[in-house]
């Protein structure tokens, strides 16, 4: 269980003074939940990750992990947590086995226990035959797997992952997320992953959307997407002028809520009459019109546009 109450975090920017990275954040993550915290770059995900992993301390607020206070009981919390960083915390001059050995020593694992767990974990991650290889020779995707195995060796109750697919190609990203899926089904642990890729959050049990240090929405991916209705229309126009014109027409004639970003329009609650109107009278003003199911990214745009108004 991760419980965050009224968390505030500031950092000092030279000559500019204090900047708030997290503002009055409240969040509860139930045990054995796969929770993804998503939001654009600079939204505060990594700051929250840094606080949860014990690398930074909150300025205000309380955080409890499995009932333990993150400030006063940090050494106990560290034993409960496995951490996967944005850049793998691996020594590229050492072999996989040597990296795992150091991790085992730092976590006080007996050699036999380490050996048994490695034997188990290397099989399901497909790394069994690579123990003697230098980490520096591994591909990015493979290094991520090694990092994941390392983070799991001491059998943490909570797994923290900060943008773990960062820098991976689409295949590597899919493989890594498949492994996380497998992990959550086979082992009892709470997983908290951050990602700026909204599509990655769709796999989670629960998603939190963070923007400018504030938590805008929390819920299951489906619950969150349902806020936008079953379907929406996305219209791609050639330029901003056409987009503005269509936005005005849809709002004035059809009383619809439209979100415009550059030359793209997103419209909720479009009916057949509106579609007919668009296709018969304004076809020359857009290049593409698609009816699609809302995504978490749509929800993010929806919420953040509303906040601007």
């Amino acid at each position: 269980m991760i419980s965050i109450k009224e968390l505030n975090y500031f950092y000092n920017v030279k000559k500019l003074g204090k900047r708030q990275a997290l503002a009055s954040l409240n969040l509860n993550i139930a045990p054995n939940t796969f929770f993804t915290l998503t939001g654009p770059n600079g939204s505060g995900k990594s700051t929250l990750f840094s606080i949860l992993s014990g690398l930074s301390q909150p300025n205000e607020g309380q955080i409890a992990i499995n009932g333990l206070d993150i400030v006063s009981q940090q050494s106990k919390i560290r034993r409960l947590m496995g951490v996967v960083f944005q850049n793998p915390a691996l020594d590229k001059h050492l072999t996989l086995a040597e990296n795992f050995q150091i991790h085992g020593d730092l976590y006080g694992m007996e050699p036999n226990l380490l050996k048994n767990r490695l034997a188990e974990d290397l099989v399901w991650t497909g790394l069994s035959d690579r123990l003697g290889e230098l980490v520096g020779t591994l591909s990015g995707g493979m290094a991520r797997r090694v990092e994941l195995v390392k983070a799991l060796l001491h059998r943490p109750k909570i797994l923290l992952m900060d943008e773990p697919t960062n820098g991976l190609d689409p295949g590597g990203r899919r493989d890594f997320l498949d492994m996380v899926d497998k992990l959550r089904h086979e082992r009892e642990m709470t997983i908290l992953m951050t990602s700026h890729i909204f599509a990655e959050a769709e796999r989670a049990d629960k998603v939190g959307i963070l923007h400018k240090g504030s938590l805008l929405a929390v819920g299951s991916p489906q619950e969150l997407k349902n806020r936008l209705g079953k379907e929406m229309v996305v219209i791609q126009t050639a330029d901003r002028q056409h987009a503005e014109f269509l936005k005005e027409q849809l709002a004035k004639n059809h009383h619809l809520k439209v979100w415009a970003r550059e030359g793209e329009l997103r419209v909720e609650g479009v009916d057949k009459n509106t579609l007919d109107d668009l296709l018969s009278h304004h076809r020359d003003r857009f290049n593409e019109l698609a009816i699609k199911r809302p995504t978490l990214e749509d929800l993010f745009i929806h919420i953040t546009q509303d906040r601007k108004v």
């Binding site: 690398l55 560290r78 947590m81 730092l106 976590y107 006080g108």
Partner: peptide
């Protein structure tokens, strides 16, 4: 960072 989060 990987070392700093360890319980050592």
């Amino acid at each position: 960072q990987g070392i700093l989060v360890a319980p050592v």
